[in-house]
Design a protein around this nucleic acid. Structure first.
Lengths: 113, 113
DNA sequence: TTAACGTATTGACGGCCGTCGATGTGTATC
DNA sequence: GATACACATCGACGGCCGTCAATACGTTAA
């Protein structure tokens, strides 16, 4: 439980703060969060979460009202972040959530909303 | 459980995707995540989480190796997002996590790390 | 082989954001 | 009052990122 008592301070004197997350870890976390901090990518993840089979990337431009290169760009970000996997068959690319990602994504959306 | 079976597709024919998060909700979520997607703000939240009493903002510039205006800027973002509260006493501004924020932040960091 | 389709990549543009110096405001000390 | 301190705001700069047109690559159909 947090106290409401305010510390007594002295002019011109600053205090040391307790050690926190390391700079490198903070940057890793921030990077992971930045991948999710985009409306299009959130919708992609939500759609993949609902889907019962891998989804063809060709269906997204219409759904998201974005160009094909832009959708491909977002998918690349999600793939680099290890959130989605891709299976190519013929001329099509089918994307799905990586195993274990679903729970993390769900927890994230719950934590924010 | 997700099937690995790939859908059968036809050239030149795209499929409709199931409805997902609305555009407005996706933007809200993305905005909330963007506030957290910064190393400095993550460290601020982590320090406030550990603190047993409200923390004077004057202690952060040294700790984060950032200028005073920059720290003030980050605190403003966190305050606007409803993540922290401020109490002014004399010339000092003391910040603390808003009640209920701690659990949400913790859940978020768990979901990402 | 040629043509059509799906996808990824490239290059360029515009906007957003983190950062800092300078400045303004308020408060306490002398 | 005058000075010093803490804080917020403003203006400007630089870099990152989402977006798209154009292009290149690979695959399938004709």
């Amino acid at each position: 439980m947090k106290l409401l008592e305010l510390p007594v301070r002295t002019r011109g004197v600053c205090c040391d703060l307790p050690p926190a997350i390391s700079d490198t870890k903070a940057q890793r976390l921030a990077g992971a969060l930045r991948v999710l901090a985009d409306p299009a990518r959130l919708q992609i993840l939500d759609i993949l979460r609902q889907a019962e089979t891998p989804v063809c990337i060709c269906d997204f431009p219409d759904r998201l009202q974005l160009s094909q290169p832009t959708v491909s760009h977002h998918m690349g970000k999600l793939k680099d972040a290890g959130l989605v996997e891709v299976t190519k068959k013929g001329i099509w690319s089918f994307y799905r959530l990586r195993s274990g990602t679903e729970a993390r994504v769900q927890a994230l959306l719950d934590a924010v909303s």
